[in-house]
């Protein structure tokens, strides 16, 4: 039917549960919408199940080694002797953040990673992005090099928004002409000129965190990426931008890419993802249809 549903899946669900305050739908309409959403999702998932894999996570183990816990790091002579002798600090604490995670993501899938703080969601994404080397006996295999979008501050805080867009595009491997051609589209998408027409000429350190996150999302989403990973980046924008970026995620998914979303907002996960993976203490607890996993996670969270 219509490509862009006017009602988001999470709104329908909330309305059925009687949590959405006011709405103009009858119960039959809601049930029909819900059935349609579930049917479309099942169809998308069935199609994606036979697609080519884009990310294979095979028995992934990530161990953080925290150097120098407890020893003085500040003395210049100590640093010099460490440089000369190539010795590492004697005290190393190990944190086993991800313990043997395996899953396969295919083209056209959008996967939500859910779990408590410190459960290993962001670490898993960083490993898929190739930022953290996995332990022996496992690995992450990807098609192309995925980009990771986090909520951290601006890309280059000293540079203007304009420069950040151009340099960011060049860093992703675009040519100069291509970067210039995409510039206006990125600025329009980020909507940061709506609140301040001179925003693009200001250094990004002057941006609010929401504005910076919007521009970063616009830069990273400007290219059709094979694998796009979004770490809480959607939570910072305002409602209007969230709806818009969800639309963009659906487009990316339709153009046969794979999207990963980490979020603590179950509504955002239900609206953007078809599949969800629940991670707890570095292990996968559930992997399946978004409603099924999100329901279980919500029920478990309420138990306290």
């Amino acid at each position: 039917m219509a490509d862009t549903p006017k009602v988001l899946p999470s709104q329908v669900l909330r309305a059925i549960q009687g949590k959405e305050g006011e709405h103009s739908f009858s119960e039959e309409e809601l049930a029909a919408l819900r059935a349609q959403i579930i049917e479309e999702r099942a169809k998308r998932r069935a199609e994606a199940a036979t697609n080519q894999p884009t990310v294979v996570v095979d028995n992934l183990n990530i161990v953080y080694r925290i150097h120098g816990a407890g020893t003085g790091r500040g003395s210049a002579t100590g640093a010099l002797s460490r440089i000369v002798s190539r010795r590492t600090s004697p005290t190393i604490r190990e944190v086993h953040a991800v313990r043997g995670i395996s899953f396969v993501a295919r083209r056209g899938e959008s996967i939500g990673l859910i779990g408590r703080n410190g459960s290993g969601k962001s670490t898993t994404l960083a490993a898929i992005a190739g930022l953290l080397p996995p332990e022996k006996g496992g690995g992450v295999y990807t098609d192309g090099q995925p980009s990771l979008l986090g909520i951290n501050a601006a890309l280059m805080p000293d540079l203007t928004g304009e420069r950040n867009v151009i340099v960011g595009c060049l860093a992703m491997g675009m040519s100069k002409a291509e970067a210039n051609a995409r510039y206006q589209g990125i600025v329009d998408f980020s909507r940061i000129q709506e609140t301040n027409p001179h925003a693009m000429n200001l250094p990004m350190k002057a941006y609010s965190s929401g504005m910076a996150a919007r521009l970063r999302f616009a830069i990273a989403a400007s290219r059709d990426q094979d694998v796009l990973m979004i770490d809480e980046a959607l939570a910072t924008g305002d409602a209007k931008f969230q709806a818009q970026s969800e639309q963009r995620i659906r487009e990316l998914r339709a153009s046969a890419g794979t999207v990963f979303v980490v979020s603590h907002s179950m509504a955002a996960i239900r609206d953007t993802c078809d599949r969800a993976i629940w991670i707890e203490a570095g292990k996968i607890l559930m992997d399946g249809d978004v409603d099924e996993v999100a329901d279980a996670y919500e029920a478990w969270s309420k138990q306290g």
Partner: peptide
Amino acid sequence: EYADLGGVALAAKYGLKQSG
């Protein structure tokens, strides 16, 4: 497919490369 082949063989089949 992963259960059948295992991670390394599956990655090799579709030409995926080790990330990073």
